[in-house]
Design a binder for these strands. Structure first.
Length: 802
DNA sequence: GAGTTTGAAACT
DNA sequence: CAGTTTCAAACTC
């Protein structure tokens, strides 16, 4: 197995920007928890529990490998009544506490004896391995037993799990705290190690969200250095299990060993997960151990049948995982798929350096990575967080994102979006093809539901909806991509149930789905069951590889995962000129290079994306119905282009809402540019889409001129960060109105257009409205660098197409 | 479904 | 940066 970039991956998992994370905020805000101390931690080892599990799946996870972060270590008062769950699961605590204490003691003892010191030191040397194991296993264990909808096989499953998990959680919390103390006591032995213990005692596990709780809860519970924790954990496991055959311990060790070289297992969570499992088992009266050993079918008095079932399932999952080791290629994803898609696919991880945004978090149903926790402290249940929804989300510069299945359903979102604290809906359309496709789906599935449409386009005015509708009618969109009735689509429908939106699937044979050749990979989604790829590594189990690969690709081209089609189409709300803008007013970011297809086939990315060719295109004989790039605008002076281009507010279409690039994305749900997340509120899902609605039906798009600007900067050698800064700081109003009106596509476009010449916008030819034409011209002038915008015309694909 | 065409991505 | 190769989707039969 190639694990070339393991190092990177580790770095990627590094805990970063903890203070920025919603979880951190949340924890900090918990009144019941006393911040006992503040510790500066340098975490060389990235076990990041503070970030959503999705992080693991995200190719881009963090950029900051090491950071000193003041961390609060809340002390969990185990005896505190608050800790009990609202539904009276307190008993579980009493049940668990003794074990927990025991475990904690063990851990401490171990630490005190400096038995872990060596391990810790080693961890410093090569932390990633352990850390990753821990992380991955933890997350996995959690995932597996936590129940995504798919997981719930028994009615009471959830509730039972809740209890068990809570126990685990508690134990972990204590454990983490204890370890932390131990570590501190032996600080000398643990150089550079930090343990973070964040405990939120007030969290409540809702019966429905326990999954999230764990996943996310784990995040909340503690952030600790894997190097320390993993070791300690294992030790603890051993000790606890003591003479009992050490099954768990051996298992964990085995996993750890196996994990080496196994990307899937390379998460720090692995060991922890194992430990967690062990803990859970212990807590449950060793029932788990028996279960875990598979052979056991006996019930212990303490363990309710449901619990058994749960444990059994966990056990099975672990076994399955174990089996996977060393046989990735053979791994039958399908089998796992049922379990994983519940969470993996739903997690669109946006990687925002340091802060992780769960793109699909809004999908409450999926819950997988959304942070949803309740706490009683304020007598309020706080559903927080959905990373993308909270103001606390910080977007960091990182374009990457891995979104699986945004598609997952717009429907779901529709139902859940209103749950966002912000009150704003996450899904904003008309922009991304994916969104559109979702819309189509909605339309087809729930006819006449204008409501649905509105939900999809929250905050968007009717015009946007209209645009969307029009756009949907465009050949590329409605005719092909979105035609669910076509044989292909039917197949998709059947395979995916039509609701998850993952209609597309790749068929990669050689790329292992780790190159941009792969649509899935390029779109930032994992390959899923329907994919017919061979030797696919673009799966959650190989997330570290995926992540590393993405990083590598991004290092080459930071915008590689940005949407290819940049849409600027905000409705012309504020400015009268953009009346004719349609969702199609977008351009391919780089432009196509078609020679033979005449840009009339899907070979052409522009056409495929439903956009017209632009000046950026180098196509020959362009006949793109969405807009050709033929003309050159005479009036545009090339000299001026470069300068003004940067000043242009990409988003400017309306100038109303999109000061920043990020905002420009509003309609697109498009990829996250660095600035994107930063500047804009988490309301919008941070995923990036590809213009096609890749399998996930998520389509892409949108981007902003800034994006293009970024691209240019990139080429020009400017630091990405610089660019990001620029984007962030760029005031929306700086740009003249007129400039703002300009569709981003133009700007956005390519850096490499052969002709940065004046290109007459197709629109002219196509017959866009006069006003539009005028607007375009102005735009072109002001933005010389991106001369062409044929797109202008192309902006109206629907019109032209229709 | 196999083979061909096409153009993007990757490589040199 | 240009040319070439590789790749997988799109297309054709």
């Amino acid at each position: 197995m190639d694990t070339p970039q393991r190092g990177q991956q580790h770095a990627g998992t590094a805990l970063s920007r903890v203070e920025d994370s919603p979880v951190f905020s949340y924890i900090s805000s918990l009144s019941p928890i006393k911040p006992v101390k503040s510790v500066h931690i340098t975490h060389a080892l990235p076990l990041n529990f503070s970030s959503p599990p999705s992080v693991f799946a995200s190719p881009h996870v963090n950029t900051q490998k090491e950071r000193k972060i003041p961390i609060r270590y809340p002390v969990l008062d185990s005896s505190a009544p608050d800790f009990s769950s609202e539904d009276g699961d307190d008993k579980s605590l009493s049940y668990v506490m003794p074990n927990l204490l025991k475990l904690s003691e063990c851990a401490i003892d171990e630490k005190a004896n400096c038995r872990t010191k060596c391990l810790l030191n080693e961890a410093n040397v090569d932390p990633p391995e352990e850390c990753q194991k821990l992380t991955s296993h933890l997350s996995r264990s959690l995932e597996y037993d936590c129940g995504s909808p798919n997981h719930n096989t028994a009615p009471c499953y959830g509730s039972q799990n809740k209890v068990d998990l809570k126990r685990v959680r508690v134990s972990l919390v204590d454990f983490a705290c204890d370890v932390q103390e131990a570590v501190e006591s032996s600080a000398n032995d643990i150089e550079g190690e930090d343990i973070r213990c964040q405990v939120h005692s007030k969290e409540e596990v809702s019966s429905c969200d326990w999954e999230n709780l764990i996943t996310d809860g784990s995040v909340n519970l503690f952030v600790f250095d894997p190097s320390t924790e993993s070791e300690a954990c294992e030790e603890r496991c051993q000790k606890v299990r003591g003479q009992d055959a050490n099954y768990s311990t051996s298992y964990s060790l085995r996993i750890s060993e196996d994990s080496i070289g196994d990307p899937q297992r390379s998460h720090p969570a692995g060991a922890l997960a194992t430990c967690l499992k062990s803990t859970a088992l212990d807590v449950s009266g060793d029932y788990g151990q028996q279960v875990f050993s598979q052979n056991n079918s006996e019930h212990t008095p303490q363990v309710p049948p449901t619990c058994q079932q749960n444990n059994q399932e966990i056990s099975d999952q672990f076994e399955k995982m174990d089996d996977e080791v060393g046989d990735h290629d053979l791994f039958d994803y399908e089998t796992d798929y049922q379990h994983q898609r519940g969470f993996r696919r739903r997690c669109l991880v946006f990687e925002v350096a340091g802060s992780h945004v769960v793109g699909d978090s809004k999908d409450s149903s999926s819950a997988s990575f959304s942070i949803s926790f309740k706490h009683i402290s304020g007598d309020k249940q706080q559903t927080s967080s959905k990373p993308s929804s909270g103001p606390r989300q910080h977007a960091l510069p990182s374009i990457g994102l891995h979104l699986n299945s945004l598609a997952t359903s717009s429907k779901v979102r529709i139902a859940t979006e209103d749950n966002l604290p912000s009150g704003r809906k996450l899904l904003s359309l008309p922009c991304s093809t994916g969104a559109i496709s979702s819309l189509v789906t909605l339309q087809k599935t729930s006819r006449g539901s204008s409501v649905a449409e509105e939900d999809l386009c929250p905050g968007n005015d009717p015009q946007e909806l209209t645009e969307m509708r029009n756009y949907l009618q465009s050949p590329a969109i409605s005719g092909e991509e979105l035609d669910l009735n076509s044989p292909k689509k039917k197949k998709c429908k059947l395979e995916n149930g039509g609701e998850h939106g993952s209609c597309r699937r790749c068929n990669c044979k050689k790329s292992k789905c780790l190159k941009l050749y792969c649509e899935c990979f390029a779109a930032g989604v994992y390959c899923v069951g329907p994919c017919a790829c061979e030797g696919c590594l673009n799966k959650p189990i190989h997330e570290d590889i995926v992540l590393a690969t993405r990083k590598q690709i991004e290092s080459r081209n930071p915008l590689a995962f940005a949407p290819k089609v940049i849409r600027a189409s905000a409705p012309a709300t504020g400015i009268g000129e953009d009346i004719n803008k349609t969702p199609a007013s977008a351009r391919h970011k780089r432009g196509c290079n078609c020679k033979k297809s005449g840009c009339l086939k899907k070979y052409c990315e522009c056409y495929q994306g439903g956009v017209g060719c632009s000046a950026s295109c180098r196509c020959e004989g362009c006949k793109n119905t969405f807009g050709r790039r033929e003309g050159v605008l005479p009036m545009v002076s090339e000299e001026n282009e470069p300068k003004e281009e940067q000043h242009v507010d990409p988003c400017g279409d309306d100038g109303v809402e999109f000061p920043h690039e990020a905002d420009c994305l509003h309609d697109n749900d498009s990829p996250v540019t660095p600035s994107f997340q930063i500047s804009r509120p988490p309301l919008r899902p941070p995923f990036s889409f590809s213009e096609k609605p890749p399998r996930s039906s998520v389509a892409s798009i949108g981007s902003s001129p800034l994006l293009s600007a970024c691209h240019k900067l990139q080429k020009s050698g400017l630091a990405k960060s610089k660019l990001e800064k620029h984007l962030q700081t760029a005031p929306e109003d700086e740009t003249p109105k007129i400039l703002r009106e300009m569709p981003s596509p133009l700007n956005a476009v390519k850096t490499a257009s052969p002709s940065r010449k004046r290109v007459s916008p197709p629109q002219h030819e196509i017959g866009s409205s006069p006003s539009q034409k005028g607007g375009r011209r102005l735009i072109l002038r002001s933005i010389p660098s991106f001369p062409a915008l044929t797109g202008v015309s192309s902006n109206d694909p629907p019109e032209t197409a229709l």
